[in-house]
Design a protein around this nucleic acid. Structure first.
Lengths: 164, 164
DNA sequence: GCAAGGTTGTTGAGCGTTCAACTGTTGCGA
DNA sequence: TCGCAACAGTTGAACGCTCAACAACCTTGC
């Protein structure tokens, strides 16, 4: 039988040192400002939040302009529930449609309509310009590479293993 | 009088090259996963979203444990409206209270209560640990410094000039 | 062939955020 | 000191997200 004579001492908090704290806070603030800017820009110019735009982008990159709901959810890093609600809204706008999946009767396939593709084409330049102005153009090529490496390390630590 | 003979040609979209695209997407995905993780952790352990936690942190760092609403809003990078709603919730929980400002009758001061401070003390170790595990520990000291520089550049490009 | 358990996707309630409109107050120039 | 713009903060409606519960279907092992 397992006997624990004394409760193990709860490990002391490893607080952040000054450099770590500064990095974390700067990252946090930059990200909040950045995401706010993108959300506002897309809401104004295309009538949708950034998350919805990303859904359309992913669909547009698929050869058939369609994807299984669950695949779309993991590739946009969103929950099934969030995606389901989002696709409902996108369907109301006529930008996406739901189709039954041929091989799995539980499944649904989200398909980007022509209207959705048109909206995306019209919204993309403004969004890319915003990403440039607020992020890319502020950094040197070396920093862009550093950001890629940093982000990849963090992402791979958090993403389920089967995510591409 | 100013005369424009021909409308100026709309500038062609400066699309992202492969390296820029990869960096941007990795950053986007890492950040979504990271913020989700922090939100979930704090919601579970402390019953509040990350944004609310940050409000308590800022207040706790003020000598008087209080701040003007507008100062608190800009320092947490949130809108006045968001902060107002948030403080309402935090007040309902008894973690913050609103006081009238002595020098400006329009003003309100948010003050961290003892209960709020206690909650913060109890929630902090778990949150710091999450920041370590998912972010700091995944990076080398050089990368942490790089992240600080990158984030500072981006933040300073977006923040109103009078923000410290 | 069938039961058990896993997977896929949806739903509704509750909560947080946004946006626009609003109140009350202050600062400033005529 | 009057008038007015700017400022500080709040409010409610609309919307997006989370969470838990759910229905439907597939898979596995017997």
């Amino acid at each position: 039988m397992c006997r624990v004579a004394y409760p193990r001492r709860v490990s002391a908090t490893r607080w952040l040192n000054a450099a770590e704290q500064e990095a974390w806070r700067a990252y946090l603030e930059a990200t909040l400002l950045l995401f706010d800017a993108f959300d506002r820009q897309l809401q104004q110019d295309a009538g949708m939040p950034h998350g919805y735009y990303e859904i359309l982008v992913r669909l547009s990159e698929s050869p058939s302009r369609s994807m299984r709901m669950s695949q779309l959810a993991t590739s946009t890093r969103s929950s099934r529930s969030r995606l389901s609600h989002a696709v409902t809204r996108l369907e109301e706008k006529g930008w996406v449609e739901r189709l039954d999946c041929a091989t799995d009767r539980r499944g649904q396939v989200a398909h980007l309509t022509d209207a959705g593709y048109a909206v995306l084409e019209q919204a993309a330049p403004g969004h890319v310009e915003a990403v440039r102005i607020h992020l890319i153009d502020k950094l040197t090529p070396e920093q862009i590479e550093q950001l890629r490496e940093i982000s990849t390390a963090v992402r791979d630590g958090l993403a389920p293993a089967d995510c591409p």
